[in-house]
Each structure stands twice: as structure tokens, then as C-alpha cells.
Write a protein that binds this DNA or RNA. Structure first.
Length: 479
RNA sequence: GAGGGCGUAGCUCAGCCGGUAGAGCAACAGCCUUUUAAGCUGUGGGUCGUGGGUUCGAACCCCACCGCCCUCACCA
């Protein structure tokens, strides 16, 4: 990244650019009509077919009077054959000013070389953009992860599978929207900047609005706003958008990440399970052609239905005692070197659960019926009042989704908020009164779900790090 | 936030027990009209992440800092 004009590699390229200019040619081109995409062009091969293509020159094999180039666009690669006899002397002079990395357009006819490679015999070409910096090397490519993330454009040029992953991401999200819209859901956008951050328990980013002199938080979840829409009569509603959490970074966590939240009036968490199975297996099929996905060397079958396992039973099986048995839980926590201190018993028990149970949740599996203490926005289960109608979906040991039968009783909702507030530092959390007022107007019984879009993309594209499915993951600033 | 690993040419990497910097590709000059990691001959290219220290001498040993990766913690 260092700017060193004396660098010979850069100086040579600048000299080539100046020489192009001196010929009266704009080194940064302009509109070029009639350009065909390379992959279909190769697929439709016919001897002598007149074609036109444009792309980046990624390789060159020179023979003085006959030259072979590799031209790449985002669909594929084709070889160019540039012969002095055909293009003529002036064009050949210009050709010799080209550098690897330049963008050009060409016209010519297709033929096969004696080794059978489909090639364009170039009749004329045009410089579309001179490149002033060298590209990563052709054979080993670019593997330095820091450069890959900081200069993603180089990653996209050098590593075709990276381009492929982000094309798939686009395909997944587009199909996701289509699938829901087809089923009567409407997509909305709710505030990213919120006066009271709610809907999850995470540390928010803080910001400030000057004109209103108001403290604002980047949202940690859209939940409370989407539920207001449920009150307003939007019976099937979803949002795909960014959430921001001011917490640690890991292969599964980026401070800004994409979440889909969805609410369906008159449904419940069972409805959400069916919807999730249908949606995710459909997305896998769309992108990979089947419902089996490979991730990190393992294979996962996403065809419905997926097993349902009760949270408390999973714990009992693994631990050999009850989740609510605070003493045994605390003892086990110490054994597992989990912090006990003065923390709430349910927080400790939840940590112990994660240590004992989570490693076995290769999935896909719905973990259902969570203890009420862990779920302030969820309706209590009529079968077991210690638990709520909530599930988390695990695939490849990753938490992919979190869903509930939504609590729509405003009186109990207020109590849950107040109970949650105790034990938090003063001033850190405020009750969202507006939301409670909305709920007092009558929120329909509903099922709701949040699905981590980045993680779904990870699973479907076999990407081990969230940084491989986020184009520009957060990095420390350099210098 | 804690622990571990890494940082050498544009890129990918060597560099042993401390003796003063190497390769391939890329670049430049030359030869070459069907190559495909083209080939052959020749040339240039380094703040060894940054700053200190130890030493006659440091890419190498020590300390601090910067950045990246992994594990853990917080979380989705």
C-alpha cells in the first residue's frame, strides 16, 4: 500500500500509460458497446464466429510477432491471439504498451489452437483501462488474508472461488426474498438508529444526532419495531438488514452482520420451525442443487423435517442432573472452569448447558422449550410453565436461528422487562415504554424468528469464517 | 480482554547454531509467428512490520509497540 513513486514497477506502468496518452489514446477508455460475456461465448463456440469481448488481461505469453493473452471477465476466461500480420504495425506498438492487469476490449473471430484451446484471433482491440499497479502473482495467487480482506478487490480478481461465494450470497438473499414474498410476507425497513436499543441483550454502538441533540444507538435487533407492525396489522412481515453489536470479533462474529427477522400473526414456534425447514432446504437446493451441504469436511442433510430436542432434556442427558438444581449446576460450572461468582443461577446454568450440550449439536437440530429466565420476549409453555415456546436452530454446531411463540400479554411483558432490569447496571438499560403501549393496543398471537443470514451463507457455501462471506469485514485501521 | 502463532522483493515463499539478503513468478532489455505456469540470455528490485536493547556483528536473541490469524471470554 505504500506510496513510493520511485518504485520501478509503478514507474514502468506510469511510463506505459503516458506513452498510450502520447498516442492520443485515453488510457481510461469509455463506453464499449456490443461486449459479450466470455463464458457463454466459449460455450457457443463455432469456428470463425465473429465475437467481441472485454475484460482484464491476466496473463501473457509473448513471441514478439505473435502473442497469447488471457482475458478474464466475471463469467470466465478466454485466450486471445494477437498477431502482427493481422492487427498491423501501429496496433502492435500500442499492444506492446499493455501491462498485465489492464482492461481491454477486443473484436475478432473464434478458432481453436493446435492444442484445442478456444481462442479469439484478435482483429482489433481497445485499451479500456491502464492499470498502474501490479496484480498478485498468477500461479500462487493471493493468500495473505490481511490483503484479501483489506483489499477485497484483489481477492476477487485473484481468487475466482471468492467471486463465486459472493455471487452465491447474492443468489441466496434474492431467493430468500422471493420465497417469502411468494408466501404473502411483505418486506419492511425499521430504524437502524434507535433511542432505546432492544430486542436482544448485547452492547450497542452509541452515536449522537446533532440537530436533535439526542443520543442514539445502532440497533442490536429490529424485533420491537417489527412487533409494533404486528400490532398495526401487518400480519406477515420480515426485514433483511444489518444489526450492530459492540462485542468481540471471531470467525463467527462480525460487529455488523445481516439478520432476517420475520413475524407471522396467528402462528407459533411450530409454524416457525416448518417455515425454517422449508426456507433453508429450498435455499440449499437453489444454490447447490441438492439438500445436502458440505461444511468443514462434514456433510449435513437439510431436507425436512429436522429433529426437535428439548433444552432441559438435553441438559439432563448430558449432565445427569436437573438444569434448575442450582447447587449441582454451580459445582459443575466450577469443574468446567466457568465463572460462578455472584452471577444469576440461570446465567451459570446456561453456560454449563453450552459447554456440555453444544459440542454435540452438529445438526440440523431444533433445540426447543428454553427456560423462561433466558427468554424475556417469549410466551410461556402451557405444558411446562418453567419453560417458554422458543427454539434455536443449530447447524454445524453454529446457532443459525432463534425463534419464539411471541409473548403478546403486555402485563407479563412488563414484568419480564422489570425482572430483566434487575441485575443490570443502572442506566444501561431502559424499558421501551412505547413498545409496551403498542402491545397494550393488542398484538396478535404470533410466531417470530431471527435467522443469521451470514451464517446461512457460510453453511451453504462451505465458508469457515464469517469474513469469507462479508465483503468488507471490520479491520483495525492501519498506519 | 487473556493465551498461542505469524509479519523477509509487487505476489508466493526459503533463509540452519548470530557472520551483513535468496528463489520462483511479476518487471526491464534482447531472441522467438500456435503458446498456455511458454522457452532461452542478461539486468534491476529489500526500512527483513516499527522503535529500542544485547553483541565486534542481528532477518535471527531480548523488550515495547503496530497489524493479521487461531483458541478462550462476550455474543448471533
Amino acid at each position: 500500500m505504500s506510496e513510493r513513486p520511485e518504485d520501478k514497477l509503478l514507474a514502468d506502468r506510469r511510463a506505459h500509460m503516458e506513452a498510450v496518452k502520447a498516442k492520443g489514446i485515453d488510457p481510461w477508455g469509455g463506453r464499449q458497446d456490443g461486449v459479450q460475456s466470455i463464458a457463454p461465448l466459449v460455450a457457443a463456440y463455432a469456428e470463425g464466429l465473429e465475437v467481441s469481448a472485454a475484460g482484464r488481461m491476466t496473463g501473457r505469453r509473448q513471441f514478439g510477432k505473435a502473442n497469447f493473452l488471457d482475458l478474464r471477465d466475471w463469467t470466465g476466461k478466454i485466450q486471445l491471439y494477437v498477431k502482427k500480420d493481422i492487427v498491423g504495425d501501429p496496433a502492435m506498438e500500442l499492444f506492446n504498451l499493455l501491462d498485465i492487469g489492464d482492461l481491454l476490449s477486443v473484436k475478432g473471430k473464434l478458432f481453436k489452437t493446435k492444442t484445442g484451446e478456444i481462442t479469439i484471433e484478435v482483429k482489433e482491440f481497445r485499451v479500456l483501462t491502464k492499470s498502474l499497479r501490479p496484480l498478485p502473482e498468477k500461479w500462487h495467487g493471493l493468500s495473505n488474508v490481511e490483503i484479501r480482506y483489506r483489499q477485497r478487490y484483489l481477492d476477487l480478481i485473484a481468487n475466482p472461488e471468492v467471486m463465486e461465494t459472493f455471487r452465491k450470497r447474492s443468489q441466496i438473499v434474492a431467493e430468500w426474498r422471493r420465497w417469502l414474498t411468494e408466501r404473502g410476507f411483505i418486506e419492511v425497513e425499521t430504524p437502524m438508529m434507535q433511542p432505546i436499543p432492544g430486542g436482544a441483550t448485547a452492547k450497542p454502538f452509541v452515536t449522537h444526532h446533532n440537530a436533535l441533540d439526542m443520543q442514539l444507538f445502532l440497533r442490536i435487533a429490529p424485533e420491537l419495531y417489527l412487533k409494533r407492525l404486528l400490532v398495526g396489522g401487518m400480519e406477515k412481515v420480515f426485514e433483511i438488514n444489518r444489526n450492530f453489536r459492540n462485542e468481540g470479533i471471531s470467525p463467527r462474529h462480525n460487529p455488523e452482520f445481516t439478520m432476517m427477522e420475520l413475524y407471522q400473526a396467528y402462528s407459533d414456534y411450530n409454524g416457525m420451525m416448518e417455515l425454517t425447514e422449508g426456507l433453508l432446504s429450498h435455499l440449499a437446493k437453489t444454490v447447490t442443487g441438492g439438500t445436502k451441504v458440505k461444511f468443514d469436511g462434514r456433510e449435513f442433510e437439510l431436507a425436512a423435517p429436522w429433529p426437535r430436542k428439548k433444552y432441559l432434556e438435553l441438559f439432563q442427558e448430558k449432565a445427569g442432573f436437573d438444569w434448575f438444581d442450582a447447587e449441582k449446576v454451580a459445582a459443575k460450572a466450577r469443574e468446567l472452569k466457568i465463572e460462578v461468582g455472584k452471577r444469576a443461577p440461570e446465567a451459570i446454568a446456561s453456560d454449563v448447558w453450552e459447554h456440555l450440550v453444544e459440542p454435540d449439536l452438529s445438526g440440523p437440530v431444533f433445540v426447543i422449550d428454553f427456560p423462561v429466565e433466558l427468554s424475556p420476549l417469549t410466551k410461556r409453555s402451557p405444558r411446562d410453565p418453567r419453560t417458554v415456546e422458543r427454539f434455536e436452530l443449530y447447524i454445524a454446531n453454529m446457532e443459525i436461528a432463534n425463534a419464539y411463540t411471541e409473548l403478546n400479554d403486555p402485563i407479563e411483558q412488563r414484568e419480564r422487562f422489570e425482572r430483566q432490569l434487575k441485575g443490570k447496571e443502572e442506566g444501561m438499560e431502559t424499558i421501551d415504554e412505547d413498545f409496551l403501549v403498542a402491545q397494550e393496543h393488542g398484538m396478535p398471537p404470533a410466531g417470530g424468528i431471527g435467522i443469521g443470514v451470514d451464517r446461512v451463507v457460510m453453511v451453504i457455501t462451505d465458508s469457515k469464517s464469517i469474513r469469507d462471506v462479508v465483503l468488507f469485514p471490520l479491520m483495525r485501521k492501519t498506519d
